[in-house]
C-alpha cells in the first residue's frame, strides 16, 4: 500500500478516539444533571469538578488528534 493513502486512513482511524471522549462527556454531563436534579444545592461545589472532568476527557480526544498529526508527518 502506498504511504499517502495509508497515512490518510490512519489519520481517519485516529479520529475514532473521539467516540470514547463523546461517551465520557455524555457520562459526565448526564450524571451531573442527574445529581443536580436529586440535589439542586450540590450544583455550586460540583460544577467545578464537572468542568475539570470535561477538560480531562476532551484532552483524551485530542490525544487522538495529536496521533493523527504524527501519522501525517510520517506518511508521504
Amino acid at each position: 500500500m502506498e504511504s499517502l493513502p495509508a497515512s490518510l486512513i490512519g489519520m481517519g482511524l485516529a479520529a475514532a478516539g473521539l467516540g470514547g471522549a463523546g461517551v465520557g462527556l455524555g457520562f459526565i454531563f448526564g450524571k451531573a444533571i442527574e445529581a443536580f436534579a436529586r440535589q439542586p444545592s450540590a450544583e455550586g461545589p460540583l460544577s467545578k469538578y464537572i468542568w475539570i472532568g470535561a477538560a480531562f476527557v476532551e484532552a483524551i480526544a485530542l490525544y487522538g488528534l495529536v496521533l493523527a498529526f504524527i501519522i501525517m508527518g510520517k506518511g508521504g
Binding site: A55, F56, E58, A59, L62, Y63, L65, V66, F69
Partner: peptide
C-alpha cells in the same frame, strides 16, 4: 507527557 500534551493538544486543536 500527559501534562504537556494536554495543554499543547487543546491549544493546537482549537486553533486548527
Amino acid at each position: 507527557v500527559s501534562l504537556a500534551v494536554r495543554l499543547f493538544a487543546n491549544m493546537t486543536a482549537g486553533h486548527t
